[in-house]
C-alpha cells in the first residue's frame, strides 16, 4: 500500500546517494595520484632546458641617477607615491667617525643628492635594490594559499587573482622587496619584468641604466652576459647567512650594506 511505496522510494534514494558518494570518493582517491604522476614530468627550477634568470648589479658603476626606479614604475604601473617600489637605489655614506648613513629619498627617482658635507665623508656608494629572486624564497614558504611561487624559469612571481592580501610574505622577505599595492590590494614585487623577458626583451631597469650597472641574463647560458659578469667580477649576494640562495649578484659590495 502507500507505506510500502514510501519505504521503496526511501530505499532507492539511499541507494543512489550511497552510490554517488562512493563514486566521488573513489574518484577523489585516484585523482591525486594522477596529479603526482604528472608533476614529475612538468618543468621545475632544476630543468636544464629552461633558462634560469638572474641579475648582476655593479655597485662600482652605479651613479644613483634613479632611472631604473623611475622606469620600473612606468613599466609596471607601480603607484607614484614614494612608498611603493619594485626597485630603488640607496646611497650609503660612511662618515669619518664610522657612522653609516643610508638614504633613499623617493627611491632615488630624480637622482640621489649628497646630503653629508664632503669633509665628513670617508666613502660613499650607491646600491640598487630589488627582489633577489631567492631559490629558497622565504616569501614563498610563508604564503598560506600558494599565491606566490617560483616559476620554472626561476622568477618569484605573485598570482594577483589568488593572493588574499594577508601581508605574511611582506614580513617574511628579508630584503624588504615586497609591498602591498594600494590599487590591486595584493602583494606586489619585482618580477624581472616577466612580460618583457618572456618576449626576449630586457627588464626595464636594465634597459634604461646609463652606465650598464645592471646585467640581466640566463645563468645557464654559459656564453651569456650574466655568466661573463660573474666570471669577471668577485660577486656576492645580499645576506648570504640567511641561506636564501638569491640570484641577484652584487659586485663591489661593502660590508656596510644591509
Amino acid at each position: 500500500m502507500g507505506t510500502e511505496r514510501i519505504v521503496n522510494k526511501r530505499r532507492k534514494f539511499f541507494q543512489t546517494s550511497a552510490a554517488l558518494l562512493g563514486g566521488t570518493l573513489l574518484y577523489s582517491i585516484i585523482k591525486p595520484f594522477e596529479a603526482i604522476a604528472q608533476t614529475e614530468e612538468e618543468p621545475t627550477i632544476d630543468d636544464k632546458n629552461l633558462p634560469l634568470w638572474g641579475m648582476g648589479v655593479d655597485i662600482e658603476s652605479c651613479i644613483g641617477c634613479g632611472k631604473c626606479a623611475e622606469a620600473c614604475k612606468i613599466e609596471n604601473k607601480v603607484p607614484e607615491e614614494p612608498f611603493y617600489f619594485r626597485t630603488w637605489v640607496e646611497q650609503y655614506t660612511v662618515k669619518n667617525d664610522g657612522e653609516v648613513k643610508i638614504e633613499s629619498p623617493n627611491g632615488g627617482i630624480g637622482g640621489l643628492k649628497q646630503s653629508v658635507p664632503d669633509e665628513d665623508i670617508f666613502k660613499s656608494f650607491m646600491v640598487p635594490k630589488l627582489c633577489n629572486h631567492c631559490t629558497k624564497a622565504p616569501c614563498v614558504q610563508a604564503c598560506p594559499v600558494g599565491a606566490t611561487f617560483i616559476s620554472p624559469d626561476g622568477v618569484v612571481l605573485v598570482d594577483e587573482t589568488y593572493c588574499i592580501g594577508c601581508s605574511y610574505c611582506i614580513q617574511a622577505c628579508p630584503y624588504g622587496a615586497r609591498f602591498m599595492n594600494p590599487v590591486t590590494k595584493v602583494a606586489d614585487k619585482c618580477t624581472f619584468c616577466y612580460h618583457r623577458i618572456t618576449k626576449g626583451l630586457e627588464p626595464a631597469c636594465v634597459e634604461v641604466c646609463p652606465t650598464n650597472a645592471r646585467v640581466f641574463g640566463d645563468l645557464r647560458d654559459k656564453k651569456g652576459d650574466l655568466v661573463k659578469f660573474l666570471q669577471d667580477n668577485p660577486t656576492q649576494v645580499l645576506k648570504p647567512h640567511l641561506n636564501t640562495h638569491s640570484r641577484v649578484f652584487y659586485n663591489g659590495l661593502s660590508s656596510e650594506v644591509k
Binding site: 608533476t39 616559476s151 594577483e160 587573482t161 619584468c193 612580460h195
Partner: peptide, 22 residues
C-alpha cells in the same frame, strides 16, 4: 593549481600579459 607546484600554473601566463612600455 598544482600542475607545476603549489600554485596556479596559469598565473605564469597572467604575469606575461601586460604590454611593454619600453
Amino acid at each position: 593549481f598544482g600542475e607545476y607546484g603549489h600554485y596556479r600554473a596559469s598565473a605564469i601566463d597572467d604575469n606575461m600579459l601586460s604590454v611593454p612600455f619600453y
